[in-house]
Amino acid sequence: MNKQRLIDVFCFIITSARGCLEEPPVYGPLRLLEAYVMLVDALGEEDIPSIFLEEKKHIEEYMMLCMYDEKAFQEEVDKTINRIAREIAG
């Protein structure tokens, strides 16, 4: 675990909470996904089940879609959730 990175995530989450009061609503989901990516990076790959590492890569690729194509963004987030749920369901 990288402590400095974890502290950065703390600052990011609190700053985003303030930002989300005024910013476009779709930035809320974006900030949450960004925080997820940062958390995975901070915690390190060893302790995280592979599905979450794979989804992190997907998320990094599609998260900026929210700026241009909200529908496609929503579809990608749905796919991520479904894949994780499928994995957890076993």
Binding site: I7, D8, V9, F10, C11, F12, T15, S16, G19, Y27, R31, E34, M64
Partner: peptide, 8 residues
């Protein structure tokens, strides 16, 4: 960086 969520 952590105080600039818009900075990718």
């Amino acid at each position: 960086k952590p105080f600039a969520p818009g900075l990718t």
